[in-house]
Amino acid sequence: MEVLIKLDRVTKTYHMGEVTVNALRETTMDVFQGEILVILGPSGSGKSTLLNIMGGMDLPTTGEMIFLGENLSQASDHRLTSYRRNEIGFVFQFYNLIPDLTGKENVELAADLVDEPLDVHEVLKDVGLADRMDHFPSQMSGGEQQRVSIARAAVKNPRLLLCDEPTGALDYQTGKLILSLLAKINQDHGSTVVIVTHNTPIGDMAHRVVRMRDGTIADIKENTSPLPPERIEW
């Protein structure tokens, strides 16, 4: 499989006052095109930092992040913005919808950014929100908000979908529904899906599972027979 992102000895250090936090230490790994990759680890293990660097939201302190052969580890803000705009879709744990926009408008907000977005209605229908898309986030359940969030990420038809604890704030059934949607996007559009979670069973749906501990990769496992999310139990 072709490598989409190559991380080479990436470190990330934060300075918070007098405290220095080493969020990532010398992390090296690849993300392949079209795969579902699940990054597992307890909180503070550096998995969100890794996701942020992959998504161009943050730059590595040292090391290299290479996207389809282009080294983005020192990229300008302008280049990173284009990268996020054209290549990345984000799904967050707390949905992070714009409260002043309806579900549909939140999706349009992303669709407006790219030249050839998917059809907003179709995407909302795919996530099962055809009837609820004119509601504001405050009028929706958590699951509905997360579906808007996925639609918002998917509408740009990005090469890479980055999901930070997408089920973290949801109940069991709703969580499974969200994972199915992500798997469907992976299948239908061929988007690479990276899911960060502390919930180990979710790893069962992945093609590969990365375990992180203390800011570094503990191991990477390939999963030859990923389970459909409906069959995952936790």
Partner: peptide, 14 residues
Amino acid sequence: RLQIGIMKALGYRS
């Protein structure tokens, strides 16, 4: 601040 962060994450320029 958060909304601005989201917009930027989506790819909106400053």
